[in-house]
Structures are given as structure tokens and as C-alpha cells.
Design a protein around this nucleic acid. Structure first.
Lengths: 338, 338
DNA sequence: CTTCAAAATTGGAACGATCCAATTACCGGT
DNA sequence: ACCGGTAATTGGATCGTTCCAATTTTGAAG
């Protein structure tokens, strides 16, 4: 039980070949005779050999391991991204370690440090809000390729290319859609001031409203479902004229829907609603939630592809990429079929 | 840019001490003079040293790294478990790598293999359904402590202790609650035949119904939100007499709620509903969903504690642990305040 | 100023794989 | 049987740490 694991030496002895041959078999090159290879593989099975990656890594320093740091893994939007990316990388032979920073910059720095020590060959990070550039300094020092996704926190875009969605266009489209549906007063619900994404997601809304000569209304707050529930009360008490809303994300929108249901308003008629992200739930609640769809799975696959071409062909991705988004109108905004 | 990373040697040279001293500083023992230690740390900062864990691991083979394999990371129930466990382990200085097997036994085996190669010192696994004992054989061969959680797939309980929830009692309680509310015909919705958890979650339901002399009704299917939506139609078409339902999990229940809303039934009045797991959403939809609460966060913390005591004090956990569950009645079953 | 134990420091020898250059095996054609 | 050339195999040397035994430094007591 306590004895040490067999090594490449033991396997070699058991198979009657040299350790070099075993190593060659391990690497799968067609350099060893099929017959010998079979012999070695049998010996591996019999001795219960397990590959020691640390030893290999020490010698080669290249391992198929990439780190993924997510600021809020509880949010289904990010979960979808993480799982899809992991699958895509796995298909190419890379292992992906997922970590959740829980929006805590200090923890995030620690996680990234640990990943670097473990020798990840790249990092994909959706950064937490928070103080300094510590996390990215660390990555820069280690000289590891890193991609910022979904949120842009560090300005060294040449070093840490960013990819996210074209939120501004999305919210503009959503606003226009609501106006087309006859909405007179459109509120924006959720998001805290001073955050880049919030400003981005609001900018399209503000532009379109300004063009239409309508006054914007912002109910700011955290981007959670709980806040959405609570925002419903605020909305009806303080802004009774509002007849439509764009939410920072679907979680807030779903919360808002629950809040409306509780107070007896019908979403889609009394209040027209559009969310953001188009998470799976959006199509499965009733009324179905209109949302600005971000095709997060496609984005994740794209990210994997970009990362791979960086790692394997040395092609550094463009410093900024904005993936298109599309409004998916459903009955929470059209009111059809209610 | 391309030059190799500084090693412990370089740091030593820079600080004017020997590599052994640097190593000692790294390990934090109080064996080196405070003054020297400071000198070394300064040298580390100046040379941009990063610790090479692979090398250390090769020598000591003990690293604070544990693997977590989850069968469905998209399900918020599991996400909550994973993130909480990760935080708890991080607090004790362990890094946790999370992987999603996506209910694919072959992928799971591959993931576990990769974790073992990376030298994890323990594995926590919520296993995917599927064929053979391959995954666990691998773990057994490597002699790594492993905990089965939430789902019991392997019978070697001495080797792979299991911990899960006391579902049978939970569903019995839920059934009794619904009967108390005046329900006459209670259906069980979701879950595929032949799976241990499904049988467990149904057993309490069946026992209580049998005692009350009521016929059970089972609408089986996958445990997803989409199935819940679809099940609503089945339910009303084929079993119009049903006036209450227990769902395999909250996802199914939430889907069922959406399905009811679409067809104009009021959950809590026309149909009394209880879910399972008490995920965050349950309290935030409207009507609020009654659910058998599993305190998954507490369970995750508990799991972390059990794992740590195994790893650090050598105390192997009991082969089977069933954590208590509690029914949380809300208005989807009581109908209050609707 | 010695002496001596305790504290601090140091030089190898591992750990288990990969890589390279060097060696040996094999095979078809004289 | 011999040769040449390719294919297959094989010993070191090496990667960056930790561990151990051995050595040096320190400082308090005599």
C-alpha cells in the first residue's frame, strides 16, 4: 500500500528493454517496432505503471494544461462558457483546470499564481473586479500567453488580448425593439456604476433613447437574481410610468419577472422585458424571456480556437475582438400568446 | 523574452547564498536567519523567480492539489457544490481542479487519468452514469484517496467512501406534506428508471402513498428543465386527476412551473408542487418553489473537512454517510399569498 | 581568549522522465 | 559472406527542486 509507484525503469526491466525504449513508446512516435511496443505496453499494464507528469514536465516544460479563471462560476452564463471551453480544449488534447475567483481579486491572484506554478501553458481569464494589476503582472512576469475574455480589466491589450461581445449594439437593438413595441418609458435595471461592461451595455440604450428624445431611467444594483426581485418593487413604487425594461443580464430579468408575478403584473403586457446573455433558462420560463443572445458556446469554441492557434502556431490573437450579438425576441417583450 | 526562467540557483547567486538556503526560505521553516531570509526574498523579487512545482513534486511527490470531477457542472446544484468545496479547500491551502465529465463515462475516465498524472493527492467525484468500473479501477491502482459524493456508482465503499443525502426521508416528508395540504393524486415527475438516486428519491414517496392507499403516478424522463416544460403537457393530457407533484429536482420543477404558466394553470392552487435540492432559484421564482433542501453548501464544507482529516490525519471517513435533508415549504405547495 | 553546543548554512545525491548521440540490429543486393 | 544504409535500441546527461549529512558560524559561559 505504501510502496512507491513503479517507474519507467521498472517497466523497462519487466519488459526486458531499456528505459529509453519505454519512453519512446510513451510518446507514441512510430520509432519503435510494433512488436516491442506491444511488449512494453503489456509490461506497463502488469506493473501498474502510472505516468509521472511532473518528471516529464521538469525536462520538457511543455504540458498540455491550460488554466481558466472565472469570476463567477455560479452564474450559468459563465458555467456554460467554462464547460464548453473545457470540452473544446479536451478535444484537442489539452486539460483545462477551472477555478472560480468569486469576484475576489486577492483570491484570483492566488489562483493564478498557483496555476503558473503548476506550469499551465496558457491562461484564459474572465477577471474579477478589483484593485490592482497584480494578477496580470504575475502572468506577464511568467511570460505566459493569456486571454482576457468577457471582461476587460487590464489595458495591456497587446500582451493580453481581449475578446468579448458587442454589447453596445445589442442594447441599442433591444431598445429599438422595445420602442417598436410601443414602449414609452424604458428603464435599465441592474449593474453597478463605474464598471466598464455596465457602461457598455447601457451605452446603446442611452444613444437610442437620446435619439428618440426619451428620458433614461437607471435602477442600479448588483447583477443577481435577488436584486431583480427587489428591483420590481422599486420600479413600481418610484417609476410607475415605466412600461418596459432592459436588464443588465438574464438573472436580473428573471428576478424581475418573479417580482412582477408576485405583485400581480403580467410581464409582456404590463411590463415589456428584455434580458441579456440568453442563458438556457430564458427560453424555458414563462413568459419566455426576450434576450440579447450572446452565443456563449460558440464564443467559447472560438476562444479555444484562438488560444490554440496562439499556442501551436504562435499567432497572437488581435488585441480586441467583439463578437456579434443578436436580439432574440420572445413573448416577455412582444406579449404574443399570453 | 525567450530566455529560460530563473531557478533557485540564480536566486542563490544573486543573493550570495547557497541554493539550499533559498530552498529553506521557500519552505518557510524558521530555520534560516530572518535577515538572510529577507535578503533571499529580495533576490527572488529582483530576478523574477517563479517556483517550479514540477521539480518540487518530483522530489517530494506531495502537493496540495485535489481533483474534483462533476458529472454535470451546468446544473446549479453541482456548481454550488463545486465552488463551495473549492473555496473550503483553498482556505486550507489546497488547490482544487474542477472538471466536468458531462455525464460521459469515457471522458470521466480520461479526466481522472489526467488528474492522477498531474499528481493530485485526492479525488472527489460525483460520478457519471455509465458502464464499467474503469474510472475507479484507475484510482485504486494509483492508490489515491477518493470520495464518492452525491451519487454512488462504485461498490467498493471501504476504498471509496460515499456521502450523499438522505433522499428517501426527504421525499417521504414531501409526500406527507402534500397529503396534508389536501392533495389527492400526487405524481412523481422526472428521473430515468434503473438509477439508484431516482429509486431513492422515489422510495419515500412510494412508501407514504402506499400507506395512504393512493396510487402512484410516475412521469419519467431526463432531469432537465426542458423535460419539465414538456412534462406539463403530458401530465394534464394523460393524468388530469393529478393535483400535486414531486419533481426529481428543482430544474424539472421549474420547467414544470413554466409549462403550467404557459397553459394557464396556477401552481400552488391548480397544482401543488415540491422540488428537490433547493437550489438558489427556488426561492426567487414566483410562486416560490417548495423544495427538499439539501444544504449543499454545508455538505460541501463537510466533504472538505472529511477529506482533510483523511489526508492529514489518516482518518478514513465512514463508508456511508447520509446527510439529513429538510423540506422547505413555500407557496408552490401551500398556495399561501397567491 | 577558549570552549562547546546550538543555530545557520552548504554541497552533493536523489526524484523520474526526455533528449541526444552513439551503438546495434536488420535487410536486400551483390 | 560482405557491405551499406536505414531502422531500432540504448546509455548517459539533464531539468529544478528537496533532503540529508556535514560543515561553518554564532554566542554564551567559563
Amino acid at each position: 500500500m505504501k510502496q512507491r509507484r513503479p517507474t519507467i525503469h521498472d517497466v523497462a526491466a519487466h519488459a526486458g528493454v531499456s528505459k529509453s525504449t519505454v519512453s519512446l513508446v510513451l510518446q507514441g512516435g512510430s520509432q519503435v517496432r510494433a512488436e516491442t511496443a506491444k511488449l512494453v505496453r503489456k509490461a506497463m499494464a502488469e506493473t501498474g505503471y502510472v505516468y509521472n507528469r511532473a518528471a516529464a514536465q521538469l525536462r520538457t516544460s511543455a504540458v498540455g494544461l491550460v488554466g481558466l479563471v472565472i469570476n463567477d462560476l455560479r452564474n450559468p452564463f459563465f458555467t456554460e462558457f467554462a464547460t464548453t471551453l473545457q470540452m473544446a480544449m479536451a478535444a484537442k488534447g489539452y486539460a483545462t483546470v477551472i477555478s472560480n475567483s468569486a469576484e475576489d481579486a486577492a483570491l484570483q491572484a492566488k489562483l493564478v499564481g498557483s496555476m503558473i506554478e503548476h506550469g499551465v501553458s496558457a491562461i484564459v481569464i474572465s477577471p474579477a473586479y478589483g484593485e490592482g494589476p497584480e494578477t496580470f503582472d504575475q502572468i506577464a512576469r511568467a511570460g505566459i500567453p493569456a486571454l482576457q475574455v468577457l471582461r476587460r480589466m487590464d489595458d495591456r491589450l497587446d500582451e493580453f488580448p481581449f475578446a468579448g461581445f458587442d454589447y453596445a449594439t445589442g442594447s441599442a437593438e433591444a431598445t429599438r425593439h422595445l420602442l417598436d413595441q410601443g414602449a414609452k418609458h424604458i428603464a435599465f435595471v441592474g449593474g453597478l456604476p463605474g464598471r466598464a461592461i455596465v457602461e457598455e451595455r447601457m451605452s446603446g440604450y442611452q444613444t437610442v433613447l437620446a435619439a428618440a428624445g426619451v428620458e433614461p431611467t437607471w435602477i442600479s444594483g448588483p447583477t443577481t437574481r435577488a436584486f431583480g426581485v427587489e428591483a420590481a418593487d422599486t420600479l413600481f413604487a418610484d417609476h410607475p410610468e415605466v412600461d418596459a425594461a432592459i436588464c443588465f443580464n438574464d438573472l436580473v430579468a428573471l428576478g424581475l419577472m418573479a417580482g412582477c408575478a408576485r405583485t400581480g403584473r403580467t410581464v409582456g403586457r404590463d411590463l415589456r422585458l428584455v434580458g441579456f446573455d440568453d442563458i438556457e433558462d430564458a427560453a424555458q420560463v414563462w413568459p419566455q424571456l426576450s434576450s440579447v443572445s450572446c452565443d456563449i458556446a460558440g464564443f467559447a469554441q472560438d476562444t479555444a480556437a484562438r488560444l490554440l492557434s496562439w499556442l501551436e502556431d504562435g499567432k497572437k490573437p488581435a488585441p480586441v475582438l467583439r463578437a456579434p450579438v443578436a436580439l432574440v425576441p420572445r413573448n416577455s417583450s412582444t406579449g404574443e400568446g399570453l
